[in-house]
Each structure stands twice: as C-alpha cells, then as structure tokens.
Simulated scan of single mutants.
Amino acid sequence: MKKKTLSIIILYILISLSGTFTAWSILCPAPMNTNIPKIKSYATDFWWNLDLKKTPLNIVIEANLTTFYGNLELWQVELYYTSEIYGGQEIRIYGVLLYPKNKRNLPGILLIHGYGGNMEQMLHYGRFLAINDYAVLLIDAPGHGKSTSFPKPTPQNIVNVTENPLGGYLAHAIIASLRGLEVLRNQKFVNKVNLGICGFSMGGIISFIAGRLDWNVKAIVPIVASGNFPLAIACGGLANIMIPIESRLSSKEIINLCKYFDVLPYAREIT
C-alpha cells in the first residue's frame, strides 16, 4: 500500500464523518455502567472449519459504466456475487467496483458501510480512493441495500449466537466481506496479495475480523469501531443500536456475542 496516500485518504474520511460522531454523543448520552462483565475467554476457532471457496462466487456484471470524479475518468462496474448458501437460500451481494482506466497491478480495497446503511454512503470515498490508483469494491451487507434481504440485520439476529456463532447476523456480514475480497482477487488488474479493508461502525468491526481471517490483507482501517463490547455498550456507544434494548450486559446472549465477535482477540493477532 502507498502509506502516505492512504494516510491522507483516511484523514479525509475521518474528518468527513466527524459530524456523525458529534451528533451521536449529543443526542444519545448514557451514564457509565460500572457493573461491566469481563469476558473470561474468547472463541474464534469456529472460523477455521469453514470452506467458503466450495461455493462458487457466480459473479454477474449488471452494468459497466464510465464515471467521472472531477476531471478524472473511472470505470464503475455494478455486480452481484454469491456470498454463501444459508438456510437453504443463496445470499447474493450487490457491489460496485471502481478503478482508474488503463492501470494495472492496482492495490485493492474493500469498503463496508455501517449498520442500517448501504454502499451509497461510502461511494464518495470509493471514488476518491479510485482516483488515487486503487481498485475499490463497495458492497451492501446482507439485508442492506440491493443485497439479498436475508438474513435480516435485526438486533435479535445479531445476538442469535448462543447455539451457534454462525447463526448470528455478524457472521454472515463477515462472510460477505471475505467473499468480497475474493471478488477483488478475481480481477486481472488487481494485485492479489496487496489488499486492504476499510469499514465504518459495523463495517469497522467487520474489517477487524475479516482482515484477521484473510492473510492477504495488508491494511485494515476500522472507523468508529473498537474492541471491548461490554464497555462500549455500557458507555452508551453506537454498539447499543445493534443489540435488543431489553438485553442485559450480563445476559448469556451478550456474553456469547462478545465471546465470538468482540474484535479484541482478532486485533491481538493482526501483525
């Protein structure tokens, strides 16, 4: 990755999104809950039993367009790909691939939106990255935008991990992102071993985890995402919109959610 250019781009995105953080802190303050449970052990080994490549990507190009960002010309490819087969249903993910014309060996970046959003909210940043010689894939997570509406990203589905971590919504959003990285690797103009992943809020959580699981990822840029879910919830952070309002920090469902999907154990293994 071109470190100087990427640093400038990250700063630009953070400044652009700062209004969102300020509004949340003003409108949704919450007192500190001092009774915060500690997660005694994490469980992330379940990922290694998955064989995602056994399901074909089945990439379908919906449109191949030319777009402009300022005076610079970009390719804009609208596509769908298969993330997985779950509950007997094929989960199709919508994405937009942006890249500069007449360039090869481009570093690839996957951009992931936040909870309840869609890839349109990240499109401006994707174009900015593309004019700086990156190939950028923006996706709609499952249940968002133009992607398959199943599984739904409800708070109840997010904490549905007590019996099986792969039953929870976050697992499916992470799988969609891992498959998105595979879509980037399938492009002849992308450097297959020079990939990055960037996400906002829920997308930031996904970027931590997917970036850890895919060893070809060289840069991970989570925005408004951190580990220690119990503390984030107790402090009234954005994590609260992703869990049922009646859930207690000490409940089995929240403890298990943290055990499987808190970013702390994944971040510790990123080198």
Rank of each mutant, 00 (worst) to 15 (best):
G19E: 03
G19R: 09
T22Y: 09
I26Q: 03
I26A: 04
I26K: 02
L27S: 13
P29F: 03
N33H: 00
N33R: 05
Y42Q: 04
L50I: 09
P56R: 04
I61M: 11
N64W: 01
N64F: 02
T67S: 13
L72F: 03
L74D: 09
E78C: 01
E78P: 00
E84I: 10
E84K: 08
G88V: 10
Q89F: 15
E90N: 06
Y94L: 08
G95Y: 12
L97T: 07
Y99K: 11
P100S: 03
N102A: 12
G108T: 01
I109G: 04
L111K: 14
M119D: 03
E120D: 15
E120L: 11
H124E: 10
G126A: 13
F128G: 01
I139C: 12
D140I: 04
D140L: 10
P153K: 07
P153G: 06
P155C: 05
Q156N: 13
P165R: 07
A171P: 01
G180T: 06
L181Y: 06
E182S: 05
V183W: 06
L184W: 01
R185L: 02
N191I: 00
K192T: 14
G199R: 08
G203F: 00
G203K: 03
F208K: 02
R212Y: 10
D214I: 07
D214H: 08
W215Q: 12
A219R: 13
V221E: 05
I223E: 02
F229A: 09
P230G: 10
G237V: 06
G237T: 15
A239E: 04
A239W: 06
N240P: 00
I241L: 13
S251A: 12
K252F: 08
Y260Q: 11
Y260L: 13
D262L: 04
V263R: 09
P265T: 06
I270R: 11
I270D: 10
